[in-house]
Design a binder for these strands. Sequence first.
RNA 1: GGCCCCUUCGUCUAUCGGUUAGGACGUUAGGUUUUCAUCCUAGAAAGAGGAGUUCGACUCUCCUAGGGGCUACCA
Length: 507
Amino acid sequence: MSKKVRVRFAPSPTGPLHMGGVRTALYNYLFAKANNGDFILRIEDTDQTRYVPGAEEYISEALKWCGIIPVESPWIGGQYGPYRQSDRKSMYRAYADQLLESGHAYYAFDTPEELNEMRERMKAAGVAAPQYNAITRSTMKNSVSLSEDEVAKRLELGEPYVIRVKIPRNEEIKLKDEIRGWVVVHSANIDDKVLFKSDGMPTYHLANIVDDYLMKITHVIRGEEWLPSAPLHVLLYRFFGWDEPSFAHLPLILKPDGNGKLSKRDGDRLGFPVFPLQWKDPKTGEVSSGYREKGYYPEAFINALAFLGWNPGTEKELFTLEELCEAFTLERVGKAGAKYDADKTKWFNQQYLRGKTNGSLVREFTEILKGENIDDKGVDLKQVVGLMKERATFVSDMLEGRYLFEKPATYDEKTIKKKWKEQSAEITTNLIFELDKIEDFTSDNIERSFKAFLDTKSLGFGAVLPIYRVFVTGLGMGPSMFAISALIGKAETITRLETGLNAMNGR
RNA sequence: GGCCCCUUCGUCUAUCGGUUAGGACGUUAGGUUUUCAUCCUAGAAAGAGGAGUUCGACUCUCCUAGGGGCUACCA
């Protein structure tokens, strides 16, 4: 029997988790579920200077909203904890030492200024991408170039140092990516990355390998931006003598317009959120919108995200999280970056909204009314929601029907201009008279009387209904006027028509 | 610049050598509707370019072009 599948999502708390990150988390989660495995959450906060307060909570809440629930995390715990790298700080040094001893790593004492000088020097000499590597390390201050005594002395004096990997000079490094197939990189193109920083923390490169090993991660599923450093990670596994996990590098989510990966700025620029939840930057106070606050359903968001780079190979498009868990395979993840289409996410939301029961829509709508300080005046919300449902993408769109609770404050100018004719006043007066005669003021009865009225007067719909609508709702469009009238009742309907008539008298 | 990855309708994608290249979003037209939305019907819309391999390439290989990522004591 093969090992139990264990995957991790490992964001760093440098700000709100953006939708690309959510998709990575989602694919990890789906892969775990599809393979009876574990999905774990690990916080990668090895860079203390980039720590943003609130980011961890944001990550946790965002995943929760999406239904992407880890079985182990900093908050849940687990047998492979701690799950925050800053809490694991003491564990990494031993591994760096192990590499030092086996000769796969070395001390480096170069100051940032010296590093810069080296890079400038190399550039001046025509090297486009200066590297700290097998060639340049002999010219730098490190335990490869310096004598043993010198190194010992510097260490003794407490001189700041980092520990770097010693990348072999001439070697082909092959790795098999589950999505891309074999990727081959020559070691000459990899530099001697810092593994252990002078502040006593490991870099991502060391920490992620050590943690994945210790946490028994079997599949590393992450964004394509990690592909260039994957060979380095493979080398590290070899140096430690550990079995490497499977790798899968996901294609990126690109900007809808132009090119480049979707970034924080794009959302506000293009009018859609890039974050699952709203985020307020603790430093600048700047607010970035979130899908949740915009009224998207998490199932719509997740469904849309899942289809950005993956498809089931069938024509089915609407998938619940559970269905995604069953259908998901890495084989069906595409290789190319996907431009984000905000319209399609809206469409998904509309689909899910329609699937909701009127009862649950009423609950949501009630909240929105409360937020807008609108009194429903005892109008049957179930009917309201039923009436507005087909024309809404978000529950908040149903606010269009606020005229069901409130008299219109203004009349749609375009409708008045186009439809208010000389005879309109008389027609409307007659209409009021007809409506008043209806005993049982139901939608069907109103419709019947209305049509009979048109017949006897030889009038078309267009001569009567638009004015009827604009006086009652203030708008030039909307659902059935008969249903609307029945909902607000005979008295209110007639009052509004009279008010409209009076308003037109004055002009 | 260097290294790596990628390339089918405007967008997301199906196709795993032989298809009228299919679907969805969007879009256009028509129908339904008092109107708008919904809904229904129909339409426009794609294999970056060039070489090969093959009886046959969207599919395999190479080159070119274009796009993307990486290139920190950041992840």
